[in-house]
């Protein structure tokens, strides 16, 4: 391998790795706050990437129907709950959240799609279409089971993954799409040929990390999320509703998923089920970082990106195998160093 090639692989690794890092952060957040292993994150990636490509082709992405249908189902659940408890106080706000907001976004998409908006507008539209799916998914699939064990929630995630990936196939079809790069420019940095697209990805990831850091260290809602992650009972006792924390963390995760999809869609061809693998690489990054520390998860994810780009050079057929078996040494190390923990639940 020449020096040039390894630099090129390095660039590729950092680009993908920073997307995995974003995903790893979102997955860790959701796990800490709701104890959910958020497998369906992958579908949000696919949805966003495919929607962007469709918008660029002037077509209305099918995710609109998922959004409307999901909102309708969530609203129905809220209505049923209000009927059962005979409490109406929160109903109008929640119906607005699940019906009006998705409806407005869908209408906007329907109006804008054939008019071929410019790139920035396309991206914003995609983010607006996919982000509300997070809270909607939380409301439908997870909130009724909030007290369940980690393992039950894991199975819920798998079921949700089935539903969302099935819907992806229905609304986007089986063929892959790729959107136009944000920028075609290339710079020469010494011997390195840097693509503007890579810079975009890295810069956007860094910006999001900064915003997340500010959110969690400065804002009260960020602290409320951390509080829920640290001590669920304590959080309830100061009046932080677990549903609020769950919804909020799912919204953040969905936003990050959508953004990752947007960033990756010009880099590689995305199919309805590609996102699943991408999100799992975020998990691998989080596991490499020990499933607990945000900075380590970022490092682990960059490691995944590197491993992937270098192994695709050496043996591209087995690059997935190499990436996914990379967790074995980490698990081995952890199982030798951790004392067994008791899951006190039944």
């Amino acid at each position: 391998m020449s020096f040039d090639i390894s630099l090129w692989l390095l660039q590729d690794g950092v680009t993908n790795g920073s997307i995995y890092a974003l995903l790893a952060l979102a997955l860790l957040l959701v796990f800490a706050v709701t104890r959910t292993i958020f497998v369906p994150q992958g579908e949000f990636i696919s949805y966003a990437a495919l929607s962007l490509a469709l918008l660029q082709a002037g077509r209305l992405p099918g995710v609109v129907y998922v959004l409307l249908g999901g909102g309708l189902a969530a609203a129905a659940l809220e209505l049923a709950q209000a009927l059962r408890a005979r409490r109406w106080r929160h109903l109008p706000r929640r119906l607005a959240l699940y019906l009006l907001l998705p409806g407005a976004i869908a209408a906007l998409a329907w109006w804008a799609a054939p008019r071929k908006p410019d790139l920035a507008e396309q991206v914003l539209l995609v983010l607006a279409l996919v982000t509300p799916l997070g809270p909607i998914l939380y409301r439908i699939a997870y909130q009724p089971l909030a007290g369940a064990s980690i393992l039950v929630l894991f199975i819920v995630s798998m079921a949700a993954h089935y539903v969302l990936s099935g819907l992806g196939l229905v609304f986007f079809g089986g063929e892959g799409l790729r959107s136009r790069p944000f920028a075609d420019a290339h710079f020469r940095l010494g011997v390195l040929d840097v693509s503007a697209q890579s810079l975009w990805v890295v810069a956007a990831s860094l910006a999001i990390m900064l915003v997340l850091w500010l959110f969690f260290s400065r804002s009260l809602y960020g602290k409320a999320l951390r509080a829920t992650a640290v001590n669920r009972i304590g959080a309830r006792l100061v009046g932080v509703r677990p549903e609020l924390a769950g919804s909020l963390s799912f919204a953040i995760a969905a936003f990050i998923g959508a953004l990752s999809g947007v960033l990756i869609s010009p880099v590689t061809t995305i199919y309805y089920d590609t996102g699943f693998l991408i999100a799992l690489k975020g998990f691998v990054g989080a596991i490499l970082g020990g499933m607990g520390s945000y900075p380590l998860a970022v490092l682990g994810s960059l490691g995944v990106g590197m491993l992937e780009s270098f192994s695709s050079f050496w043996s591209s057929a087995f690059k997935e195998t190499i990436v996914f078996t990379a967790i074995i040494p980490v698990l081995l190390w952890r199982s030798l160093t951790t004392r067994q923990v008791e899951d006190e639940e039944e």
């Binding site: 796990f31 292993i37 064990s149 980690i150 393992l151 894991f154 693998l277 799992l280 998990f283 691998v284 596991i287 499933m291 057929a317 087995f318 997935e320 195998t321 190499i322 996914f324 078996t325 967790i327 074995i328 698990l331 081995l332 952890r334 199982s335 951790t338 067994q340 923990v341 899951d343």
Partner: peptide
């Protein structure tokens, strides 16, 4: 390497090597 670890590691790990071995079978 996994049975001593807590709850969520094993399912995640099983998914990971499930994918790993799938690509081995296929390649």
């Amino acid at each position: 390497i996994t049975l001593r670890l807590s709850g969520h590691y094993l399912p995640l790990a099983t998914i990971a090597w499930g994918i790993g071995i799938y690509f081995v079978f296929g390649n």
